[in-house]
């Protein structure tokens, strides 16, 4: 897609976190230092009578105070089965209610033929997959009438049929669709360790103009040497180092932390992303910029 046809940049929302139900009340009570929140769309969809769900009612109250973005795990953008338009319709209903700043899901597939693994399975990085996923992203963007954001996932396997690197794969899709990128720096780190590539090479190579959001999170190093994206612990130093590296010559977009298991208290959770804020406003980093 030519540069001239590209849409405007995503808004800079500041520092945020993936809001989990455990912390709703504290945030509503004004105890949060965050600028914005990301919420998992599926938690508010598909529940019979979800309009009456106490959780959704709380979310709508939160929306009055904060910017929100909707993050999904089930669009199944990479699957070879047809897109689930009932799911997209339900998502659109929620989106119209919440009015998020943007909508995102993972660059992966989760199942086929109506069956689900509940896993974010990687795609082979092939020309066929670029074409297939790009067509589906365009369909989704048409359906919502706006840009859709795709997140790079952590992966534990490499397909023999892959014809390019992950960052080349993402770049090709962005060229064809002008979709946004949710750059998960923890996932970059995890995959780089699992597949022995340079995480800095990845960060240098993705089309950064399309990056609208950054994720950071914790992971788990297994006894067999594999690193698994568990979101159950604090962010590691290597991930913070990669954020610093990015900030050397790039203007960072909205950044947030995710934590999904063994969720700590709100203060500990927020401290993960506030650490980035502190480092970016420190004299050392100011000198870099």
């Amino acid at each position: 897609m030519p540069e001239s046809e590209r849409k405007t940049k995503y808004p800079q929302l500041g520092y945020g976190l993936g809001l989990r139900p455990d912390h709703f009340d504290e945030v509503l009570d004004g105890k949060s230092e965050m600028d914005w929140f990301e919420v998992l769309a599926e938690n508010y969809m598909g529940i019979p009578g979800h309009g009456q769900s106490p959780l959704l009612k709380k979310l709508l109250r939160l929306r009055e105070k904060y910017s929100l973005v909707l993050h999904c795990v089930s669009i199944n953008i990479g699957a070879t089965s047809p897109l689930d338009f009932q799911f997209l319709k339900d998502l659109k209903e929620l989106k119209n209610l919440i009015e998020p700043s943007w909508l995102s899901d993972h660059l992966c597939w989760t199942g086929i033929d109506g069956k689900n693994t509940h896993e974010l399975l990687p795609l082979p990085y092939t020309i066929e997959a670029v074409q297939h996923v790009s067509e589906r992203i365009l369909q989704v963007q048409d359906f919502f009438g706006e840009r859709f954001m795709i997140e790079n996932t952590s992966s534990y396997i490499t397909y023999k049929s892959s014809e390019m690197t992950e960052w080349e794969f993402i770049s090709e899709i962005v060229k064809k669709t002008d979709c946004g990128i949710l750059l998960d720096v923890n996932n970059v780190f995890v995959s780089s360790q699992n597949h022995s590539f340079s995480p800095k090479k990845f960060l240098d190579s993705v089309p950064f103009a399309n990056v609208g959001q950054i994720h950071i999170a914790g992971h788990d190093r297994r006894s067999n040497g594999l690193i698994v994206d568990t979101h159950d612990s604090a962010v590691c130093d290597e991930v913070y180092d990669l954020i610093s590296y990015l900030s050397l010559n790039k203007e960072l977009p909205s950044i947030m932390v995710e934590w999904d298991d063994n969720i700590p208290d709100l203060k500990t959770y927020e401290a993960q992303v506030l650490k980035v804020k502190e480092s970016l406003t420190s004299p050392k980093v100011k000198a870099w910029t």
Binding site: T80, I112, E128
Partner: peptide
Amino acid sequence: DLKSIQKEIFQIVR
């Protein structure tokens, strides 16, 4: 092709 790859991986995972 992509479809056959996904069928085989799905079978293994599930």
